[in-house]
Simulated assay, not measured.
Amino acid sequence: MSQDKVDLSSLRREYVVGDLNREDLQDNPVDQFGIWFEQALHAYADEATAMTLATADTEGMPSARIVLLKQYDAQGFSWFTDYRSEKGAHLAQNPQAELLFYWSGQSRQVRIRGQVEKLPAEAGQAYFQQRPAGSRLSAAVSCQSHPVESRAVLEAAIEALRAQFPEGDVACPPQWGGYRLRPQRFEFWQGRPSRLHDRFIYQLNDSGQWTIQRLQP
């Protein structure tokens, strides 16, 4: 049965939620992020921590996926994963990345670019033990991003591990842990009517100070 195609060029959205002015910005971008992040958490806590992580391999081929923010402070923005995953392989080759938060209900985006480093092993172990038992078992069994013959193979491996650790108290695998992106550039984007959006970048200069500049939409 054929279906009528949607004319994507005719789809429109008007951004009328709010504005962003230079005098409203905090001097430190982490403080500015904190304000927007708390507002996003209040609006929809189950989605506010979702962020796109963009990496690239040594050939410059990009790759993007959604991960969850688990911690942020003046030192950077952190998440956890399997070091053997595609993103882990990319970061081992090219330890630079960008994060993108998109909070559609508030018509806001935040881009954060910088260098990436591994968190200390004890940070990964501490967070791993906080995860639900099922998540710990899955992480211990899976070699993330690598091929597998079937889902049945994965499920059998988890059941075998569950028999060994009925309470799910498996130890954190050595190949699993955290990363931290140390920001060098932020962009705050606020959607505005008629596509005349507000955009500001914070750039870290050679003296370690943040400079702020408005961008054209």
Rank of each mutant, 00 (worst) to 15 (best):
L91Q: 08
G34I: 01
A121S: 11
D57L: 02
V116Y: 03
D4W: 01
Y44D: 12
R182V: 15
R12S: 11
Q209T: 10
W103D: 06
H146R: 13
H197Y: 05
F101T: 08
G168N: 03
E117C: 06
Q209M: 07
C143D: 09
Q26T: 02
G191F: 00
D82H: 03
A45N: 11
V6E: 13
D46L: 13
H197K: 00
P95E: 07
A163L: 12
V6M: 14
E14I: 07
E59L: 14
F128P: 10
F128S: 08
R214E: 15
S207Q: 10
W36K: 05
F33D: 02
S78T: 09
Y72G: 04
E167F: 02
D24Q: 15
S207M: 06
R111E: 00
R65K: 05
Q109Y: 04
P193I: 02
G76D: 09
M51L: 13
G178D: 09
L99N: 10
R180G: 03
E59M: 06
E98H: 00
L25C: 13
A56K: 05
R111I: 00
A152M: 11
L25F: 03
S207Y: 05
R182W: 02
G60I: 04
Q115H: 15
D19I: 07
V153K: 15
V6S: 12
E149A: 15
Q190T: 04
A171K: 14
L25D: 03
V67P: 04
G134M: 08
L154S: 12
A89L: 10
M61P: 01
A64F: 05
A92T: 05
D206R: 13
A64W: 02
R199S: 11
R65S: 06
E47W: 10
P217L: 04
G177K: 03
E98C: 13
P174T: 13
A126P: 05
Y83C: 01
G208Q: 07
D198V: 00
R84Q: 06
G18E: 13
E23N: 15
P193R: 06
F165I: 04
D82F: 03
P166G: 08
G105Y: 06
Q32M: 12
A54C: 09
D57I: 00
A56Y: 02
V17F: 10
A133S: 14
G134E: 06
S207E: 12
A64E: 03
V116N: 12
D82C: 04
W176V: 01
A64T: 12
L8Y: 14
T55R: 05
I212S: 02
A171T: 04
A123N: 14
T49Q: 10
D198F: 01
E59W: 02
K70N: 14
R195Q: 15
D4G: 12
H197L: 01
L68E: 08
M1A: 12
R199P: 02
A43Q: 14
D4S: 13
S138L: 11
Y72T: 03
W103V: 01
P147E: 11
R185W: 12
V67D: 10
A74K: 14
M1W: 04
R136S: 00
